[in-house]
Amino acid sequence: MRRLLSYLLLLALISALIESSICHGASIEDSIKNVYSRLAEAEKAGADVHDAALKLEKALELARQARENPENGSLLLAEAEKLVNEVNSSIPLLIETGQKRIFWRNVEIASAASLIAVSVFFTYYYGPRIFWGTWLRIRSRWIVEVSGRSGREAGKRDRR
């Protein structure tokens, strides 16, 4: 009777372990999906999620390997869970960095637009002055001679 009880206990323990392992496997997949949803939201908010997504992909691969190799399952699942937690905890920072990046990008676009507007103004008002000033400077060393009736008689009209 005692032996039967101990067998039953052992059986219950084994089934509980198997069940917990299966549940753990299912829960890691659920948490990957949850973190993916958060990551997609973060990307919409401007975060660069490239590296985080690759980490999540690695976690997904580990979860699959854990399903296929139950003997190393717990180890692989622990590693996957670590990666998922890592990605999950990095999301607020990713959003913050992304928002900063968007802000500076808008600043860049606004500055470029302003710079172009200012350059249009300067070109319109000072362009001709600068052009003729440069033209005169380039030709300042030219010697102008009064030519005869034809250019051939007078030789060269001007020399630099």
Binding site: V49, H50, A53, L54, E57, L60
Partner: peptide
């Protein structure tokens, strides 16, 4: 088969 890919990546 499940795979998570960021933009521009392939598997």
């Amino acid at each position: 088969y499940e795979v998570i890919l960021p933009h521009g990546e392939n598997a």
